[in-house]
Design a protein around this nucleic acid. Structure first.
Length: 595
RNA sequence: GGUCCGAUAGCUCAACUGGAUAGAGCAUCAGCCUUCUAAGCUGACGGUUCGGGGUUCGAGUCCCUGUCGGAUCACCA
């Protein structure tokens, strides 16, 4: 039984009976704290049907509901707002049905499939803070769709080819002396990243030197020997030169090993990986087909373009005059390949930063022009940049926050603060370590996910390691607290069944509030997926935990003499712990048994 | 310059998509551990929702306009 549905239908009945009208949009909202009640009907829009003043309309509906619905016990009217008080018996029934439903918080399978792309790094540099937001977001949105009944495929596209990786390769060849992750003790992605920096340093020095000799800036940038080497390697790679391909494979291999370790610690996973080196040729084919069909056009120099002026955009290049593909070409190929691999998906969600909004607008238009119906179901989950207190992250200024380092710092800080509180003496070393990791990552993920994804956000390191207030650890702590209650109940052999709870006669305000929040869980799961926003769940989990703590503070569970109330309180605690756990799991965060 | 985002308490963020006296956390101050975990709870302080017009029963939310930030408009990815 869904309380809100029942209430809405009772209100409809009342409107029909009283005013002989049907209203498609019943405006129901939570009641403000200062008034009695939980649900409020906004009556202003109903005055046209009722032909009464808002207050009179509210009163009429209120009276009707009290007399006929069996849900509402009393009401009050403030201006045009009808504040409804739900009977405790109804609350008890609502809770009994939630408690009996083991799958509460997961909607039934809907037979639909969807694909979520996230992460999608370049292979020349280690992952950083921006990737963390991307990964946590993508992972969470995928989990949200699962909870909404979808079959979800998590994928990424790895940008494994192009000039960027050739730069690392060139620098390694020149200065590497055969260094490997094994010989250096460096993580593979870090090692390759080191040579990317090395490239940049030498490149700049060489270009500067040339300029001092009187070469123009543009020319110097082309003439720098290390750049020539990188470009040469790119051409050799495209020509499948064995030595170059071998080095490319080796260095990318190092990067993947490094990434795997980072992904593992982040707790994200992928069903299938796509590599641009595999998809760019397909994209090229599709573009050439498009030229034949007259969807795209070729210029005299041989370059291929799409004309999007009719859509209010520009002309956009799809193949260079030398016939090589650009970023867009690859993305066309990747998209098509994915729908071949997973024919049942209805669409794709691309988790990519908002600096690429224009790119995806163009991509979806092109796919539509190529005749793919599913282009309409492709969505760019565009998220804002992560700024530091000092401003944007800039690799040149060394302000990039490394993903591995950050996760380690969070775990260390969690350890420091946990030890200081001294509550975990009975845990083994291994358990403790696991707990620090859970808390540190929980804090980090929650910090990055609690903000609306669309908005740019500020990452303040000092604030992110906070474990009090609106944070992941606060919620984890609440869960651990409830688990302690449940362990005690178990040891006292207190077992609650949905049937026991029907005899419940009255509720305390804090119980009613907690129960009300609990009843909103599935709505929140729908809303979060619809808006592609884990922040909805983060806020919900926080509200729920906060409300539980208030209940916990006000009411002593085990001092209750009435056995039905005692059982109810244990059962309510159980259901809330479970909702907290599921919510946090939707964010990719685990919750501990004790902390 | 064109297009698209954003601006809410000292700071970081909410506000159920047009509803009531705009809410949390942090910070500051004052209370609460003999009780189920004080990573908690209660209270105080804190607002011209960037400025100016408009739409209507009602605007932080919609429209116009100005200011300030950001992104984007490559034969880069």
């Amino acid at each position: 039984m869904n309380l809100e549905h029942s209430l809405r239908s009772e209100i409809q009945k009342a409107i029909t009976a009283l005013f002989n009208a049907t209203i498609d949009q019943v405006q129901l909202q939570p009641t403000n704290q200062e008034f009695e009640g939980s649900h409020t009907l906004v009556c202003f829009p109903l005055t046209r049907a009722s032909k009464l003043k808002p207050e009179e309309t509210a009163k009429a509906i209120g009276d009707y509901l009290v007399q006929h619905s069996g849900i509402v016990t009393r009401y009050n009217v403030v201006k045009g707002f009808l504040n409804l008080v739900i009977s405790d018996r109804t609350w008890a029934e609502t809770f009994a049905s939630i408690y009996a439903n083991k799958n509460y918080g997961s909607l039934p399978a809907n037979g639909k499939e969807i694909m979520v792309e996230y992460s999608s790094p370049n292979t020349n540099k280690p992952l950083h803070l921006g990737h963390l937001r991307n990964n946590f977001l993508g992972y969470s949105v995928a989990e949200l769709y699962k909870a909404n009944g979808y079959n979800v495929h998590k994928v990424q596209i790895i940008n494994d080819r192009g000039i960027h990786i050739c730069k690392s390769m060139a620098a390694w060849k020149l200065y590497g002396n055969g260094e490997t992750p094994q010989s250096s003790g460096l993580k593979g992605d870090k090692l390759v990243g080191k040579y990317y920096v090395e490239f940049d340093k030498n490149y700049k020095a060489q270009a500067k030197e040339l300029q001092e000799k009187g070469v123009s800036e543009a020319e110097a940038e082309k003439q720098a020997p290390i750049m020539k080497l990188a470009v040469d390697m790119l051409q050799k790679w495209e020509a499948k030169d064995p030595g170059t391909v071998q080095l490319w494979k080796t260095m990318n291999g190092w990067v993947y090993e490094g990434f795997d370790a980072t992904y593992k610690r982040m707790g994200v996973d992928f069903e299938k990986l796509y590599y641009e080196s595999d998809t760019y040729l397909l994209g090229k084919e599709e573009v050439l087909k498009g030229v034949e069909k007259g969807i795209f056009f070729k210029k005299e120099d041989g370059s291929v373009w799409v004309d999007l002026t009719a859509d209010g955009l520009d002309q956009k290049v799809l193949l260079r005059s030398d016939g090589t593909s650009v970023y867009m070409t690859q993305d066309i190929g990747t998209a098509i390949l994915r729908f071949r691999d997973f024919p049942k998906i209805e669409g794709q969600i691309y988790t990519v930063g908002n600096e690429q909004e224009y790119h995806f607008k163009v991509l979806f238009l092109i796919l539509g022009k190529l005749g793919y119906e599913w282009a309409k179901k492709c969505y760019h989950l565009s998220y804002g940049m992560v700024d530091l207190p000092s401003g944007k992250m800039k690799s040149r200024e060394g302000t990039v926050v490394d993903a591995d380092d950050l996760m380690q710092e969070m775990a260390d800080e969690a350890e420091r603060q946990t030890r200081e509180l001294g509550k975990i003496d009975e845990l083994s070393d291994a358990e403790s370590k696991q707990l620090f990791e859970m808390i540190g990552l929980g804090a980090l993920k929650f910090f990055l996910l609690k903000v609306d994804p669309k908005k740019r956000m500020l990452f303040d390191p000092n604030e992110s390691i906070q474990l009090q207030g609106f944070t992941g650890p606060f919620i984890q702590y609440t869960h651990a607290r409830i688990r302690a209650i449940l362990r005690k109940a178990e040891s006292m052999n207190i077992v609650s069944t949905a049937n026991d709870l029907k005899g419940l006669s009255s509720l305390e305000p804090s119980e009613r509030e907690a129960l009300h929040l609990l009843s909103l869980f599935e709505n929140k799961i729908r809303e979060a997926a619809k808006d592609y926003s884990p922040a909805v769940i983060a806020n919900y989990a926080y509200d729920l935990a906060k409300q539980y703590n208030q209940f916990y503070q006000n009411i002593s569970i085990f001092n209750e003499a009435d056995p039905v109330k005692l059982k109810f309180r244990v059962a309510l605690s159980d259901s809330i712990a479970s909702a907290i756990k599921k919510s946090m799991n939707l964010l990719g965060i685990s919750v501990p048994e004790r902390m």
